[in-house]
Design a protein around this nucleic acid. Sequence first.
DNA 1: TAGGTATTTAGACAAATATCTAACTATTTT
DNA 2: AAAATAGTTAGATATTTGTCTAAATACCTA
Lengths: 85, 85
Amino acid sequence: MNALFKALNDPTRRAILELLREQPRTAGEIADHFQFSKPTISHHLDLLRQADLVSSDKQGQFVTYTLNMTVMDELLGWLLQFQKP
Amino acid sequence: MNALFKALNDPTRRAILELLREQPRTAGEIADHFQFSKPTISHHLDLLRQADLVSSDKQGQFVTYTLNMTVMDELLGWLLQFQKP
DNA sequence: TAGGTATTTAGACAAATATCTAACTATTTT
DNA sequence: AAAATAGTTAGATATTTGTCTAAATACCTA
């Protein structure tokens, strides 16, 4: 839960998630959407992976990142506990 | 949205929200549930207020904090955009 | 009015974070 | 085999964050 909120607490990482919502993308494609250096994006992807928000798959020299929704469901559950009964 | 995720990115602040889920409480009552100093808790409450997750109401020397769900709904909406159609 | 209680503000500090450049690893291409 | 491409790792640095103690503010009560 900590890693999840930590990962979500950054606008760039949230934008990456929204990018991946459309379709899986390679690290380079993701980096192209931002003005930060590739190492910076790589680091953001690492935090997203630690939170299990994305999974990565290496094919040759490319690493494809895919959105992983199951953890969002956990967040959803946490959220719903606040809903009035 | 930034203030919201920032506020949620701390276990103590999330615990405060869960405390307030049951009922409104004064700053002192909230502080009694944790081992941190009162100024520290006051600062956490300030961040929660900045994110509009709680509202505060001063009555005499007491300040009562109340959970504010409307912002959670915003988070819920953000979350649901990731749901498969 | 003096003293006590509730809370916040101010200032300091260590730890965590986001970013960069340089260097490295792994893979593909010529 | 050499060079190019994709991506990560390492190390540095400025900023942000969580915490504390001390001091200030506001209110209440004797």
